[in-house]
Write a protein that binds this DNA or RNA. Sequence first.
RNA 1: GGGCUUGUAGCUCAGGUGGUUAGAGCGCUACACUGAUAAUGUAGAGGUCCGUGGUUCGAGUCCACGCAGGCCCA
Length: 1118
Amino acid sequence: MVKYNEYKNLNYAKLGEEILAFWKQNGIFEKSVATREGNKPFVFYEGPPSANGTPGIHHVMARAVKDIFCRYKTLKGYQVNRKGGWDTHGLPVELQVEKELGITKEDIGKKITVEEYNQRCRETVMRFKNQWDDLTEKMGYWVDLDNPYITFENDYIESCWALLKRLYDMGYLYKGYTIQPYSPGAGTGLSSHELNQPGCYKMVKDTTIVAQFEVKRITRNMFLFDNENEKVCFLAWTTTPWTLPSNTALAVGKGIKYVKVKTYNPYTFEPVSVILAKDLVSRYFNPKAADLDVEAYSPGDRLIPYKVVEEFEGRDLEGVEFHQLMPYVQPEKPAFRVLIGDFVTTEDGTGIVHIAPTFGSDDFRVAAQNDIPALLVQDENGKPMPLVDKQGRFVPQVTDFAGQYVKNYTGEDETHVEYKTTDVKIAIMLKEQGKAFKVEKYEHTYPHCWRTDKPVLYYPLDSWFIKTTAVKERMIELNKTINWKPESTGTGRFGNWLENLVDWNLSRSRYWGTPLPIWRTEDGDEEICIGSIEQLNKEIAKAVDAGVMEAGIELNDLHRPYVDNIVLLSKSGKPMHREPDLIDVWFDSGAMPYAQWHYPLENKEIFEKNFPADYIAEGVDQTRGWFFTLHALAVMLEDSVAYKNVIANGLVLDKNGNKMSKRLGNAIDPFEMIGQYGPDAVRWYMIANAPPWDNLKFNPEGVVETQRRFFGTLQNTYSFFALYANLDNFTFEGDEIPLKRRTESDRWIISKLNTLVQDVDSNLADYDPTRAARAIQDFVVDDLSNWYVRLNRKRFWKGEYNEDKVAAYQTLYTCLETIAKLASPIAPFYTEQLFRDLNSVSGRNSVESVHLADYPEVAEGAIDKDLEERMQLAQTVSSLVHSLRKKHMIKVRQPLQRILIPVLNEKTKEQVQAVEDLIMSEVNVKTIEYIDDTSGILVKKIKPNFKKLGQVFGPKMKLVAAAVQKMGQEDIATLEREGGFNIQLAEDDTAVLTPEDVEITSEDIPGWLVASEGRLTVALDITITEELKQEGIARDLVNRIQNLRKDSNLEVQDKINITFAKAAPEVNAAIENYQDYIATETQAFSISFADELPNGTLLDIDEYQVYILIDAKAGATA
RNA sequence: GGGCUUGUAGCUCAGGUGGUUAGAGCGCUACACUGAUAAUGUAGAGGUCCGUGGUUCGAGUCCACGCAGGCCCA
């Protein structure tokens, strides 16, 4: 006979290991995919992690979220392939290698070859792969670790190349520039990482200028002018006057308030109206001058009068045109307009920002978005360049300053009296021209090149771009079809990002990454984009034939430096060298839907079957990372979304809401957590505690609570089942007993169970695991354990093996088995054990694992909302009676005669009657009586139905409510009897109430002690008769005997003989009268009396004492 | 600085479309129960629903402006 496993002390961590071994041994994961062969696929993309660091607890969160839906969809019959992957390129790896070798980027190619450097990167990036694989397994994240895609492999890179080539052929790949920190002294761009080296930001004193940009006197600007002689100027502040010749626009803040001030130029004393931010007026004007008469000013007066004459919002100023400040070079398109910039503040300056698109990244971006050109000239090769050359000198076209360095890059002696910086010279000139409103020294921090110690310039540097703006509208459109969890990330963070899209800058000046497959002639006139190794080899052959490249170079690795050694031949016969850039690593990860299959070079069918993804999940920080690059590439390459559903999960913080970091020592080790509490409790806690998209404050105590409360309760329930089912040899043989032959509580829990199956299904279908987990938890703890099992305990251990008992077993079994299936996506280990423990005896499922099972079908017919309502009523009544007992200090073991329930309608009465038995046994009361209106003793309470009345009476609500409160018992009776009641609102205003306008409840029964909750009231008869008293004693005796049995370690099924010593007459009578009851309850063959029991045990029952002897040996072999 | 997001009991969180007495679990206190027992029940204490205005007969809920935390971007 196979038995249900019974456990003494379940060790959840050990359980995890055992189940893991079972899965491995039997290839359950593989089977969960293989057995769904031919079914509809559910496509999941794994966002590749980088294995150059150790995994943290937040990875458990992220991966649990991924795992849950893959398992769920498998249960629902889909085939879910999950290919793992590794993200291997990028700056973090490079930095780690440099740190370990004690070198900087500067040393690459000198102290260490690029080859060696990249070799180190390749080794480093997979250093913690074993730890990652280990965590993946231990936490139960099912993903194919044996055939992952790896972004540094040649096949993967080749796919990236093929995709780049496609983009190139579509005209989406172009060379342009971005504004980057640049060191003229060193002649090189600087990464933000280099800029953040200590000591790079230094305090410097710069000459700053508030310049006057004169508004054009054209029709659209006339609202800014008061009269035809007025000169109106925008004031804009700059700490880099050398950028002023390159100005093409001004930026204001949309919501910032600006004012027009009538005043005089402090250097030329000419009258002028200036526009600046309202908040900053006091910074430029002396308040003492505010009262002066503006007209009465004469040049040279110390106080310059001013008058605020008008106010605008930034948005009013958008589009206003102004005259070029320093007209050395003309733009190719219309410029010199006011734009809205989100970076504008009133912290300093004037609240108006001067825009030079060639020398600021904000400037560049806002100009590009508004189609404002940059000021450019042509170099000697006819290529466009900015007004400052790469050495940091003004170009000849800036005639007054031609050839002058914009900063001191030549080591001139700044202490010399004649020395003037270029900024100062510009300031002097603008003052003379009446275009400077204020010139002053300003001390601030400014980044310097760590090599030359000179200030950096923000300078346009070559970059390759993907023209994402070309498909912006389509990306926005398709984004609307994606189901974002939470929705706000899709519409907000991601949507806004798309709205403000700029072209994707692909270039990275680094070593360890996917090389840009573009070869160019030196003059840039000819170029080729390579899309495959095959193509490259052909081109190499051509180049070797033509003699531009030496023969015999074999391409084994597509990384640098090997690709850099390849020289190709242009159509016109010139040599072409590779553009030295690497591509953004985000391209690697965004390309994974294609590159993971080496598509488009092969596997067309597999790709098509697995695109787009049904579901992905990653941290919200990936919005502009992976989520974006997947989307961008899919729209451009396939005119499709890359994913249909996406969960953007939040952060895992420590229990105080702080970010976890190894440095602060508040990081939680995932291995430790799983080792201590097992994987299920950790997963369940994380999912049930907060929705994945909220930040989770991770508190290990919460894991303990989850384990105790949810898993402990579930395990208790199973143990209870197993204990008795084993005794009765219940194996779920034969047919299921029809619902109508089961008890009310059986049908109730089955109804609840089916409701749960529905709820969990719809929540998981909606990608909300938290609601699903909470629903399961509430069912297990509240409904199944604390109500169903508690009420039905006796059915399991008492009496013969009849249909009622079988029904109880079947019901509880069904609940447990269904819970195992429902909860298996979230707690895959424990539910596996539970399922197998149950199934190994019953064999009801033909599968060997819960993860190979099908999601339970909802038995619609078993759902009985009416019944669920009734049971709720029973629970409320019981709770009220318990509360009354407590108030009168009457223990539950003391039977009471009756409770009274006032019922105002027939339905409530019927509902309570249906659950009478349950209530009576739960609260130990003999009868329930109902009193209705006809009894005439009910005291009623009336309360306005605000929702209904509000709609009808609106503003008169308060009067109506007051009138309702005043209604007495007779008024209520009238309302009920006649279906209407007149109330007086004001002297000449009355209204008619209907029964629907109010809520009538029974509150009191005169002469009884009552308790009520909501609309339900219960009264309890607390008279204890002699008979009731005896029964109470009998029950107490049973209780004490049961304790004795337990203390003497008797098994549940052991039989005993009982001997009582004579005691108080009440006790003797109780034993006498309830002999059968006591015997049945305690499984006693016989009950006898003795005059004395010197070896007996003394029992205390309230004020009584009795000696007892129980004998387990005699005839205990029933 | 901008975008997004969160703010409800000591802690973790619920609170469709506004309805007057804001809930649960944990923790705390007391009492009870006892063949699920390292479980359970009942009761109690504990709230300026982040603040300020507004809309409304009525706001935890809607609107505006703030404050504080978080993420991303600059």
